[in-house]
């Protein structure tokens, strides 16, 4: 199945892209997909990054074909 992953802030920078289409061959929860997307990225405290599936913030959702997920780190600037 295909999912669109959108990256924000520091995560987009570490991934060097703001969006990609990923091909998944197993069923994953949002939380598992988040871990997979963040592997190898130079980000401290990966636990602070949140994942939204189809514009809903929830780590427990199971990912389906065609879903759009967003990886959201907290921002501090002001």
């Amino acid at each position: 199945m295909k999912v669109t992953v959108k990256y924000f802030g520091l995560v987009a920078e570490a991934a060097a892209k703001s969006e990609e289409v990923m091909e998944l061959d197993e069923t994953l929860t949002a939380s598992e997909l988040k871990v997979q997307c963040l592997i190898g990225l130079a980000i401290a405290d990966k636990d602070s990054v949140q994942i939204a599936v189809n514009q809903n913030l929830d780590e427990t959702i199971t990912i389906n074909d065609g879903d759009e997920v967003a990886l959201l780190p907290p921002f501090a600037g002001g």
Binding site: S48, Q50, P73, F75, A76
Partner: peptide, 28 residues
């Protein structure tokens, strides 16, 4: 909050609604 060219905006703890900790329970 802002990071470079991006911003985040919300209203928290409004009429018993979600708070910042409900979005980001863990800090960085």
């Amino acid at each position: 909050s802002i990071y470079k060219n991006e911003g985040q905006l919300s209203v928290f703890n409004f009429k018993n609604g979600p708070t910042y900790r409900c979005v980001f329970p863990k800090s960085t």
